[in-house]
Simulated assay, not measured.
Amino acid sequence: MSRHGESFKRSVVDSYLGGDESYASAASMHGVDAATVRKWVALYQAHGDAGLSGKYGRYDAAFRLSVLERMWEEGLSYRQTAALFNIRNASCLT
């Protein structure tokens, strides 16, 4: 279960996207890590509100391979790739 609800995540994202806060200041203001804010913002920008909702599941080997191939072809980071494919935890790509 997610530690933070969708409305909380949305408020953190909105505070960053409002333009007055950096990742670090938005994180500090809401009591979360700056990397978490970065991840939530990337998910929101790629998928809208659906990117902030809870998602549980497993990814089969064929899907993971296709994701990795796209990452390598486009020179994307693990974080960018996870956001693009709406994968919550980039470590499952390694």
Rank of each mutant, 00 (worst) to 15 (best):
Leu17Asn: 02
Arg3Pro: 04
Glu6Gly: 04
Ala35Gly: 08
Met71Arg: 02
Gly57Phe: 11
His47Asn: 01
Gly51Ser: 02
Ser22Gln: 03
Trp72Asp: 11
Tyr59Cys: 05
Ala46Leu: 05
Asp14Gly: 14
Asp20Ala: 15
Trp72Val: 08
Ala24Thr: 13
Val13Gly: 11
His30Met: 06
Ala24Ile: 09
Ala46Ser: 11
Arg58Ser: 12
Lys9Val: 13
Gly18Ile: 07
Leu43Asp: 04
Ala50Met: 07
Met71Thr: 03
Lys39Asp: 15
Ala61Gly: 02
Ala42Phe: 05
Arg10Asp: 01
Ala24Gln: 06
His4Met: 13
Ala27Phe: 12
Arg3Val: 14
Arg10Cys: 06
Glu73Phe: 01
Glu21Gln: 15
Arg58Ile: 06
Ser22Ile: 08
Arg58Leu: 15
Thr36Glu: 03
Ala34Lys: 08
Met29Cys: 02
Tyr16Val: 09
Gly48Val: 10
His30Lys: 06
Ser66Thr: 05
Val41Phe: 10
Asp14Cys: 12
Asp60Ile: 03
Val13Met: 13
Gln45Ala: 13
Met29Ala: 11
Glu74Cys: 06
Val41Gln: 02
Trp72Ile: 06
Gly19Ser: 07
Ala27Gln: 05
Glu73Pro: 01
Glu21Val: 07
His30Tyr: 15
Tyr44Asn: 06
Leu52Phe: 11
Val67Thr: 03
Arg64Thr: 04
Tyr56Glu: 04
Glu73Asp: 09
Met1Trp: 01
Val37Leu: 05
Ser66Tyr: 09
Glu6Lys: 13
Tyr44Arg: 01
Ala35Cys: 08
Ser25Asn: 14
Gly54Glu: 15
Val13Ile: 13
Ser66Trp: 06
Ser66Val: 06
Ser11Gly: 07
Tyr56Met: 12
Ser53Leu: 15
Lys55Trp: 09
Phe8Ser: 09
His4Asn: 08
Ala42Met: 14
Lys9Glu: 09
Val67Phe: 06
Gly51Thr: 04
Leu17Pro: 03
Gly54Tyr: 14
Leu65Ile: 00
Leu43Gln: 08
Ala24Asp: 04
Phe63Gln: 05
Gly18His: 00
Gly5His: 02
Ser7Met: 11
Met1Asn: 10
Ser28Ile: 05
Glu21Thr: 10
Tyr16Glu: 01
Thr36Asn: 04
Gly31Pro: 08
Gly51Trp: 01
Gly31Ile: 14
Met71Cys: 08
Met1Leu: 11
Ala27Trp: 10
Glu73Arg: 00
Lys55Ala: 07
Met29Phe: 07
Lys9Gln: 08
Gly48Gln: 02
Glu21Phe: 15
Lys39Gln: 15
Ala46Val: 01
Ala27Asn: 11
Val37Met: 09
Ser22Gly: 12
Glu6Cys: 12
Ala27Cys: 08
Val12Ser: 11
Asp33Cys: 14
Ser25Ile: 13
Ala34Phe: 13
Phe8Gln: 05
Ala27Arg: 06
Thr36Lys: 04
Leu43Ala: 12
Ser15Gly: 00
Arg58Ala: 12
Tyr59Arg: 07
Arg38Asn: 04
Phe63Lys: 09
Arg70Ala: 09
Ser15Arg: 05
Ser66Cys: 13
Gly57Arg: 04
Ala61Asn: 03
Val41Gly: 08
